[in-house]
């Protein structure tokens, strides 16, 4: 194992761990289901993907790397679908998203048009 490969591997592993930790903090700290889903989605795709790429550098050109690639493809395919299904099921069962005006922000901290409650004529959320 060359030094360059080792350094690259650990860079990927550490950045992947950062994503996983950030996602974990997000799941605890975010205010409602949809923002929590966003945090856990980052963990599933970004964090797990980077960790797997780091492990591929550890494995070198071998059968292990091929198996890791298959896991990566399956993960990047299945976890966004599950996040989508969960969010859609929550919307369909009437879970109201958390809008920016629910926060007690000073007017200077508001971004115009960001997370704004939709006007009553297009009620029903994104479809």
């Amino acid at each position: 194992m060359s030094v360059v490969g080792d350094v690259l591997s650990w860079l990927f592993l550490l950045s992947g761990s950062f994503f996983v930790i950030a996602g974990g903090i997000g799941v605890i700290r975010m205010p409602d289901l949809f923002t929590r889903l966003h945090a856990s989605g980052v963990t599933d795709t970004g964090g797990a993907g980077l960790v797997l790429v780091g492990l591929m550098f550890q494995g070198g050109i071998s059968l292990i790397t091929v198996k890791l690639l298959l896991i990566l493809g399956f993960l990047w395919f299945s976890s966004p679908v599950s996040t989508y299904a969960l969010a859609r099921a929550a919307l369909a069962s009437g879970e109201e998203p958390f809008w920016a005006e629910d926060l007690d922000l000073p007017p200077s901290a508001r971004i115009p048009g960001f997370a704004q409650r939709p006007a009553p004529d297009r009620e029903g959320g994104p479809e």
């Binding site: 399956f74 395919f77 299945s78 679908v81 989508y84 299904a85 859609r88």
Partner: peptide, 14 residues
């Protein structure tokens, strides 16, 4: 649900 249907069709054989 087109996304779930297509995803299931790919995942089930796998």
């Amino acid at each position: 649900q087109i996304i779930l249907r297509v995803a299931t069709k790919i995942i089930v054989p796998t």
